[in-house]
């Protein structure tokens, strides 16, 4: 009876891992691109429930339409509230590609969520998540962490496998992308839906408002793009063709 860990090493990535990986990759790339287009129309981020061109932004990204209040026409005070909320007209067209971009975003989200659900279900049942992704307690010792960090600085082609077992940082990265960041993206995305937020108002409280959820969604996107760049760099560093074949066709037996 072979030890399960050594079996998985010989077999490389299992078929369901490979299928989920490429579905999720296609979904993520589509989400990132369409999300970027959605962001272009209003690249200002806020905290709380309300945020628009007439309120201060937490952060204004140097892309797309930056509509400062002075570009809007004649603000009119229309409440007796302290701080006097105003309204102002915007009488010029802006660059807006959200029609196709949002529909594409949700289509890709369905693909990513379905692939993610299959992955987590198979991952739990087969023990893949527990065995290959979650670091064991003793692995998290500072010395082990430092050693793994150092090993990343040496050229690695040939010395690294094309599947589990994974290194410590690799485990931590995969586990946090798949079990923390992606679920957070789905949850903050759903919070931005008026229908879902009406059905489950705790989402608005959990994230501190519609705009905070949107801001978290943006930083999650930034983290995932950073992950993608490092991931591709690591794949190249450990043999691009070899790794690509292993994730697509599995390991030759």
């Amino acid at each position: 009876m072979p030890d399960p860990a050594s079996t998985s090493q010989v077999a490389g990535h299992r078929r369901w891992v490979r299928i989920c990986h490429w579905l999720a990759a296609a979904g993520f790339l589509t989400l990132a691109l369409s999300g970027f287009f959605i962001l272009l129309v209003h690249p200002r981020l806020y905290l709380g429930h309300a945020g628009n061109d007439l309120t201060p932004a937490l952060l204004t990204l140097p892309i797309g339409n930056d509509l400062r209040p002075d570009k809007m026409q004649s603000p009119v005070v229309f409440t007796e509230l302290p701080g006097a909320p105003v309204t102002a007209e915007r009488n010029f067209p802006i660059f807006n590609q959200n029609g196709w971009a949002r529909s594409l975003h949700f289509l890709a989200a369905w693909i990513l969520v379905c692939a993610g659900a299959v992955y987590v279900a198979f991952g739990v049942v087969s023990g893949h998540i527990k065995r290959d992704l979650l670091p064991r307690g003793r692995e998290l010792a500072p010395r082990a962490l430092l050693q793994d960090l150092k090993s990343h600085l040496r050229p690695a082609v040939g010395s690294v496998g094309t599947g589990p077992p994974y290194g410590l940082l690799q485990k931590l990265t995969y586990a946090s992308v798949m079990l923390v960041v992606l679920p957070l993206m789905v949850a903050t995305g759903l919070t931005m839906s008026p229908a879902v937020a009406a059905a489950y108002p705790f989402l608005l409280d959990l994230f501190g408002g519609y705009q905070t959820a949107r801001t978290i969604h943006f930083f999650g996107f930034a983290a995932l793009v950073l992950f993608l760049l490092v991931h591709i760099a690591m794949v190249i560093a450990t043999g691009f063709g070899r790794q690509l074949r292993a994730m697509t066709w599995g390991n030759p037996r």
């Binding site: 959605i38 129309v41 209003h42 200002r44 429930h49 309300a50 945020g51 628009n52 519609y210 705009q211």
Partner: peptide
């Protein structure tokens, strides 16, 4: 809350 498809809300 008015939630505009552009991304702003009021």
């Amino acid at each position: 809350r008015h939630t505009c498809e552009e991304g702003w809300s009021a």
